[in-house]
Amino acid sequence: MATLTKQKIGSVLAKQGILVAFALFIIAFTFANPKFLSVDNLFSVIRSSAILGIMALGVTFVVISGNLDLSVGSMMSFSTIVVLDLHDKIGPFLAIPAMFAMTLCLGAFIGFLVGYLKLNSLIVTLGMLSAIHGLTLTYSGGKNMDIADKEGTWFSVFGQGTALGIPVPILIFLGLAAVLGLVLARTPFGRKVYAVGGNGTAATFSGIRRARTVFLCYVMSSACVAVAGLIQASRSLGSQNTVGQGLELEVLAAVILGGASLMGGSGTIFKTVIGVLILGFIQNGLLLLGLQFYVQFVVTWVIIILAVWLDIAAKRGKLWSPIA
């Protein structure tokens, strides 16, 4: 009986482990520094996580469909640079839709390669990481991009504005999370994403168009990247052309931390948001404790491995792997 309850606690821990860890973190940090749980600080954490978080929302779709996307970082640099450049050339009203169109084209191209041509997503998006980076450099001529008139544009509203006292990036992030959460959890498309990632063959045998579903996931991901790029551009009104470099792996870390399996078929938008916030809170909390920013890297490392390990340990019912 004792073992039974122990097992139960174990399985609850494993299932909701990430939430438990999240709660523990917040409690610990709050004890260490009461400022941690203040509204201002919460806002600051979410705002600084917003760009990463928005990209993570899109990547969640891709990962649940059983694929990877390593190209989101360089794609974000691309959309940031493009929208900044076009802002001065054709004005923000046209620049924003033009940038979205271009970014969605990139996503559609990846979706075509992975979905319809059934190519390995890791390699395709690795190639696209490099190719889009090149595209961005070519586009910008290797220079940083700045808006000429930084004071006189309303374009800064996406990154710097507030509405109802809440910073706009937070509103966009949480709003998008709510919408995409509903799409994933409640719409036929979302259901198909889970089916394709859970068992692609069975999904095909159920009449689901697997290629189209995967394609749409990548398009969705690129749309999120475009939004992230928009916020990034609007926040600083100028940017280096490597602004998104390395973000792809942080994004993936957040998604995995949220409990999505790289095998596909599991994960939720809510959990991804938690994953993003955990990364944000670790960063923030360690800084408040007076620790250097790089300590968060090490802490994140440990947390990612522990989180995934406990998750699969619970599934196989054994802590250690049976590999001989």
Binding site: L249, A253, T300, I304, I305, V308, I312, A313, P322, I323
Partner: peptide, 18 residues
């Protein structure tokens, strides 16, 4: 641990950089 090498080394990529 039996965790996929992709995830393990993704984590240590961050950790080692730290």
């Amino acid at each position: 641990t039996g965790v996929d090498a992709f995830i393990v080394t993704l984590g240590s990529m961050l950790g080692f950089r730290g």
